[in-house]
Design a protein around this nucleic acid. Structure first.
Length: 774
DNA sequence: TGGGGCCGGGG
DNA sequence: GTGTACGGCCCCA
């Protein structure tokens, strides 16, 4: 029989009492298919440098007992960091191979590779069966269990580029709360579970025993039978809580296909057999544009309606006790937002999964470094590369990009010239890869005296090869996009593809400098940044020689007077002499610099305001000061008079002095970056977190603490209170005038000659007369 | 008063 | 758990 289906996961399952690869898939109507491949053999490599074949077989025979019959050893040639080695490939049944690698790790220790990659992932990479792609499967022995058609794999062929089928989605959110701070699954029942399938919201509220509502969730899942279950904080919070609640009853959470229970899997994500479990929190965690990592930010980004009342989890229990309606309304908004956000992101998720080979389940759980690594592993083996082990290394820093001191003040018509993908281009041009770096200048080597390493030019590195391929694939897609209708399905999918390829290319340099990388290269990363510094310095020299006035520069960019002829000459020189591509990135009609690097505000040619590094973009400044800075700098750039700017400032001061500001705009947000006990200093957010901790909240790394400064004496950390406990009568309004608003405005007005003294006197109420008395 | 701890953001 | 460079706050000696 032949099935044309879209694969969404591979897993280790069973066939006739033996472990087998299970390939979960659906057809264009969303019907389930499970294709079983009983023939895939797990394997690992052992380097022949560390053991002879005779000894190897002897150990395996002695230690494996009956499982030995299930093992095969073959001599193969593979590359390790580009160098050919003779390996023994030990393959066989999953259990036997696992036992064999355990035994050899103990007896030989070194030289064992790929025993740390799960068979289901090896299957994806070796068979080139990428998740979230279409395939034509030939199967036999077809049966049906529940509504899943099951068949045994004969063979398969890929079907290129067909949009993914419409997936059934169920979003889930829960109400967890406790009188005593953080809800504890040991004592605190689940208060409510809310689901949404795109049409109906179902809310199941505690009435007696929460076991009943968890069962209702299970019933809901089995009735809706979703391909995707999506939530916010599913992996770190919701699934662990629900499974912990059920442990008392000695049962698991039954939400998988064919009776599967949710269980913890690789990288700490939860796996729901036969369904795709997606946690959107992991998506927002990865992206810096989401400052506080909230669902509201994500929903706003996706241009969705925001809730009428957002309720903080610290207040869930209060609302549950006092205003349940409002709480339920909010959580209903959440499940809808989660559902709709997923719908907006599904192309990206499926494309990212398809390209990296990481199943959609945990493509977000994997860090961007790991995503890049899976991709390298996949491409590497096509070049005969064995995947190296992560080894323990000493942490070392190395110098990064070059940053120029800006010329402070207001400038007209400034062009930003930057290098197109500077680091990837350097890595390709100079062949920089872990295996191409050498210490000596002998042989075919491009040597860099200044840092004491060179790069081999007789072999092509793996990373540059991969980068070239990424760029080539992306260019192909981009040229196809030109002839497509931007609103078409095809365009959107291809656009998602080219974006993912770009992200992967841009990740490679950072990946190589990451100590946890399998393809880590301190020297390689150092050469990349060294060449980056050299490149930008050379172009600065050339720009000066051409007579261009340089205002600023950072890593891969220079800001110069907008003289199109000279700039074109510079760009041409970069291309001819350095062999790299530079371009005009944007032009500022006005741009304001302070004395500081990495901070400026500009008005672009299309009239938009761009603010970089200043208080406005930082979450550890209160919204009120941030907004004030935006308004005033916008007016400044658009040519407002000094009087107008001072009037605006005066208004912002006045509203604070009159306590007319919504206290939510006074919250300062800071992240907890380590266990509370590891902090060496007192600081407001740490102190507030410690107090929350005493009230029963588990304060974990990565949490955001929002605080407000109250009146009183002593250091700030003693006067900071959690924002849920702030009271306008106790707030230190002066702190907000002198330590939030004033510095944010001094920063942008002092470079244009408005003195700090002038602003301070306005802040004090001077020069306004009446203000003193209101 | 200045250095260290800490945080967030730029490219 | 991708990299380094940087500014600026608060605390404390």
């Amino acid at each position: 029989m032949e099935w044309v289906v879209w694969v969404y996961d591979t897993a280790i399952g069973e066939y006739k009492d033996r472990e087998a690869i299970w390939i979960w898939s659906i057809d264009s109507d969303g019907e389930y298919y499970l294709i079983i491949d009983p023939n895939f053999r797990d394997y690992f490599y052992i380097d022949s440098k560390y053991i002879g074949i005779r000894k190897l077989n002897q150990i395996l025979r002695m230690e494996l007992g009956n499982l030995y019959r299930d093992i095969e050893v073959n001599e193969v040639t593979r590359k390790l960091y580009g160098v050919e080695h003779i390996f023994y490939k030990v393959s066989g049944g999953f259990e036997a191979v696992k036992k064999a690698s355990d035994v050899l790790s103990k007896k030989v220790g070194e030289g064992i590779y790929e025993d740390d990659i799960r068979p289901s992932q090896k299957y994806i990479m070796d068979m080139n069966l990428n998740p979230c792609g279409w395939y034509r499967f030939k199967v036999s022995n077809v049966t049906t269990i529940d509504n899943v058609s099951i068949g045994v794999l004969e063979e398969f062929t890929p079907i290129e580029e067909r949009p993914h089928p419409e997936v059934r989605v169920l979003s889930v959110d829960v109400i967890l709360g406790s009188r005593y701070g953080e809800p504890d699954p040991e004592y605190d029942q689940v208060l409510g579970i809310v689901t949404y399938n795109g049409e109906n919201v179902n809310n199941y509220l505690l009435d007696g025993n929460d076991y009943n509502i968890i069962r209702l969730l299970e019933t809901d899942v089995s009735r809706v039978d979703p391909h995707v279950i999506v939530g916010f904080e599913l992996n770190q919070y919701i699934w662990p809580y629900l499974t912990e609640r059920l442990k008392k009853l000695r049962r698991g959470l039954k939400i998988g296909k064919i009776g599967g229970e949710a269980h913890q899997s690789v990288l700490g994500h939860f796996s729901v057999g036969g369904r795709v479990n997606i946690d959107l929190k992991e998506y927002v965690d990865d992206l810096p544009i989401f400052q506080r990592k909230t669902l509201e930010e994500l929903a706003g980004y996706m241009k969705m309606d925001l809730p009428e009342y957002a309720i903080d989890k610290y207040l869930y229990y209060d609302y549950w006790s006092r205003d349940r309606e409002k709480l339920i309304k909010y959580v209903e908004w959440r499940v809808k937002a989660i559902y709709n956000t997923f719908k907006g992101l599904e192309d990206h998720i499926f494309v990212l999964s398809n390209i990296t080979g990481i199943p959609p389940d945990y493509v977000f759980t994997a860090s961007s470094g790991r995503q890049a690594e899976y991709y390298i592993m996949k491409i590497g083996r096509r070049h005969g590369e064995v995947t190296p082990k992560v080894s323990l290394r000493r942490y070392r820093t190395y110098p990064g990009g070059l940053v120029l001191n800006p010329k402070p003040g207001l400038h007209d018509n400034i062009a930003v010239i930057d290098y197109k993908s500077m680091y990837p281009s350097i890595m390709i041009k100079y062949n920089i890869s872990p295996e191409t770096i050498v210490k000596s200048s002998e042989g075919n080597v491009v040597y860099f005296d200044e840092i004491g390493y060179g790069v081999r030019s007789d072999v092509r590195g793996l990373i540059p090869t991969i980068l070239e391929e990424l760029i080539r694939r992306r260019d192909e897609i981009r040229s196809r996009l030109k002839s497509l209708d931007p609103s078409s399905r095809e365009y959107k999918l291809l656009d998602a593809r080219q974006r993912v390829l770009k992200i992967l290319a841009n990740t490679m340099y950072g990946y190589m400098g990451w100590i946890g990388a399998r393809w880590y290269s301190y020297e390689g990363a150092s050469i990349v940044t060294y060449l980056g510094r050299r490149t930008i310095s050379l172009s600065i020299d050339k720009a000066k020689e051409l007579g261009l006035n340089i205002i600023y520069g950072d890593t891969d960019s220079i800001f110069v007077d907008y003289n199109i002829d000279l700039i074109n000459e510079l760009i041409e020189w970069v291309s001819d002499t350095l062999g790299l591509e530079a371009k005009i990135d944007k032009v500022f009609k006005k741009i304001l610099f302070t004395e500081a690097k990495k901070r400026y505000a500009g008005l672009t040619e299309d009239g938009s305001i761009e603010i970089v590094g200043l208080e406005y973009v930082r979450r550890d400044w209160c919204d009120y000061a941030r907004e004030a800075q935006y308004v005033i700098v916008k007016n400044l750039l658009e040519g407002a008079s000094k009087d107008k700017l001072l009037d605006l400032f005066r208004d912002f001061v006045r509203r604070l002095r009159r306590k007319e500001v919504d206290i939510r705009k006074l919250i300062i947000w800071e992240q907890i970056t380590r266990p509370l006990s590891e902090y060496k200093v007192n600081a407001p957010h740490i102190e507030v977190a410690k107090r929350l901790s005493q009230e029963g909240w588990r304060i974990k790394k990565g949490m955001f603490i929002g605080y407000i400064i109250n009146k009183g004496s002593g250091p700030l950390y003693k006067r900071a209170v959690h924002y849920t406990k702030a009271d306008p009568n106790y707030i230190d309004w002066d702190y907000y005038i002198y330590n939030q608003l004033l510095p944010a405005i001094v920063r942008i007005l002092s470079p244009v000659g408005i003195s700090e003294k002038t602003l301070e006197s306005i802040a004090r109420g001077g020069g306004v007369g009446l203000d003193m008395f209101v």
